[in-house]
């Protein structure tokens, strides 16, 4: 049997590893644009970064639907999430509570995900965008709640027009999706409340 069909282990200590990872995610979304290490000592399945896999292991369960790109859904990542989170994987991005995309992939548009309803803006997708690096890319200025004055981030790898989509997501505030930009074991939070300033 090929080893890539085997499902790797999840948390070795679910209580404290998920607590530590959650605090990193909470800090990331509370202070957008600051880098936080989501450590869970998890070996991620093929196609997911360690931070992405740890975040999903921390937050997803049988109550949350997950959307993955078809290649990941049908591969090791899909099997790993089904087994460890008991989460259902859906093919319609608009139904997902959590979703993962690669920053460079042209599809789907951010607007394809669930942005909540005016009476329940919390019922929206949390989207994990896997970048090729969290620095060295196009720089953007962030302002808004969680940021004292402004912050500059420059994650590498987002597709053309990505920041315009993020800005449009913020325009719909309080509706919108919340983003986590991940690479290796670290994340940036980019909630819908963050305004995207000039792109250098």
């Amino acid at each position: 049997m090929a080893t890539d069909t085997l499902i790797g282990p999840g948390f070795s200590d679910p209580v404290f590893q998920s607590q530590g990872a959650f605090r990193a995610l909470l800090a990331a979304l509370a202070e957008p644009g600051t880098r936080h290490v989501v450590s869970g000592a998890v070996v991620p399945p093929k196609g997911l970064h360690a931070a992405t896999a740890t975040a999903l292991l921390t937050l997803a369960d049988y109550e949350t639907l997950i959307w993955l790109p078809a290649a990941l859904r049908d591969g090791a990542a899909g099997a790993w999430l089904r087994f460890h989170c008991s989460a259902a994987l859906v093919s319609d991005p608009a139904r997902a509570a959590f979703a993962v995309i690669d920053a460079g992939s042209p599809e789907p548009a951010l607007s394809a995900f669930d942005s909540g309803s005016d009476q329940f803006p919390d019922r929206s997708t949390t989207l994990i965008v896997q970048c090729t690096a969290l620095e060295g890319g196009e720089a953007v200025t962030l302002t808004g709640p969680g940021i004292a004055t402004s912050r500059v981030i420059a994650p590498a790898g987002p597709r053309a027009g990505f920041w315009a989509e993020v800005a449009a997501n913020n325009d719909a505030y309080p509706l919108g999706i919340d983003l986590l930009l991940s690479h290796a074991d670290a994340v940036f939070g980019l909630p819908r409340s963050t305004r995207i300033g000039e792109v250098y």
Binding site: P14, V15, S18, Q19, F22, L25, L26, L29, A30, T58, L59, A60, D61, E63, T64, A97, P121, D122, S124, T126, P145, G146, Y173, P174, D178, P191, R192, S193
Partner: peptide, 20 residues
Amino acid sequence: EQTKRMIRRALLKAVAVPGY
């Protein structure tokens, strides 16, 4: 742990929409 996950998901959405 399942209850904590549910509360944690709510906390992250609460932080994303301050005051809601």
